[in-house]
């Protein structure tokens, strides 16, 4: 497989995953804000925070109100992390590898890109937002399904899964980091029921709520949610699961020694940490380390294969 092609497949998968994650995030935040009492002003800034683009956001917008944040995150082409931008990038990467991926995938990619662009305005009205974002999530899922069902599971597919899972691991840590930071301060007695609600929203951002319930069969609690989202091996959006997937993919690729070593180290770090004992500051540091680990793995893949 050509290095350039492997690179494109990897990024196509990353951008698609980014699209889906962003759509989920906005969907869940919309619902959460409807449930929270008016005096808890969580607002929309955390969403920008999750993507580490706060400074850039404020260079373009005055206020992190709903309208601006949604615009920034969904339709603003100046933001490389917006849904439309990520879809553009995914499509450009796919265009480059039309000869590698199944044709229906390219067709579906065009359809998704077109629908997302054509209906973009509907995301600004709360009533239509859910349908719009759902159509995007479904569109990405359709592509994932087609790829799983029709693309030869060869090296190219390994690069695809690596891109998807590294992006996913990264997003999971970001959501936990930002959400848990905005959760803690000034949690008075009266508001504690809403803490629960927020942890539910963290789970829902990652489509993890139902699976968490089945797995843990407990009340929602901070340490269990953290354990589930970071250490669970069988849940597809858990950090540990995602990097295990990258590990599996690498095993069938040539020249993998260095990268495998990095992954093993990161796997051990996640599994051996006692998350329940971490206070917010410790958790933040820990997540920083995990993110650094993901970046190192990416760099190593980039250097070896692209």
């Amino acid at each position: 497989m050509l290095s350039r092609v492997a690179n494109k497949i990897y990024w196509m998968a990353r951008y698609l995953e980014r699209t889906e994650n962003t759509a989920r995030l906005i969907n869940v935040n919309t619902h959460l804000l409807l449930d929270l009492p008016k005096r808890v002003r969580l607002g929309w800034e955390p969403i920008v925070d999750i993507t580490s683009r706060k400074d850039y956001f404020y260079s373009l917008y005055e206020e992190a109100d709903e309208r601006s944040v949604i615009r920034f995150m969904v339709t603003d082409l100046r933001n490389p992390g917006s849904i439309l931008c990520a879809l553009n990038m995914a499509r450009e990467n796919t265009r480059n590898i039309r000869d590698i991926i199944p044709r229906e995938v390219w067709e579906q990619m065009n359809t998704l890109h077109l629908t997302a662009k054509t209906n973009a305005r509907s995301v600004q009205t709360q009533r239509h937002r859910y349908d719009y974002l759902r159509s995007i999530i479904l569109g990405v899922q359709t592509i994932s399904g087609m790829l799983a069902g029709t693309m030869t599971h060869d090296a190219g597919y390994d690069f695809l899964r690596m891109g998807r899972n590294l992006e996913r691991a990264d997003m999971t840590t970001r959501i936990i980091d930002v959400r848990s930071a905005t959760l803690l301060p000034d949690m008075s007695e009266a508001l504690s029921p809403f803490e629960n609600l927020q942890w539910v929203s963290v789970l829902k951002s990652l489509s993890a709520y139902q699976m968490y319930r089945r797995e843990m069969r407990l009340r929602i609690s901070r340490s269990d949610v953290l354990k589930f989202l970071l250490q669970e091996e069988r849940f597809p959006r858990a950090f540990y699961h995602a990097i295990c997937q990258v590990h599996n993919c690498l095993e069938s690729l040539p020249r993998n020694e260095k990268t495998l070593l990095l992954i093993t180290k990161l796997q051990q770090k996640v599994q051996h940490s006692k998350l329940g004992t971490f206070d917010q500051e410790k958790l933040h540091e820990f997540i920083d380390e995990l993110q650094l680990g993901v970046i190192k793995i990416h760099d190593s893949i980039d250097k070896t294969y692209f």
């Binding site: 497989m1 290095s3 350039r4 090296a155 690069f159 020249r255």
Partner: peptide, 21 residues
């Protein structure tokens, strides 16, 4: 392939850059 995917070595053989080398 694009031009940058290919190289010609000193024995005049053309290669493409792949993930295997």
């Amino acid at each position: 392939v694009e031009g940058s995917d290919l190289i010609v070595d000193k024995n005049d053989v053309v290669y493409m850059r792949t993930i295997e080398g």
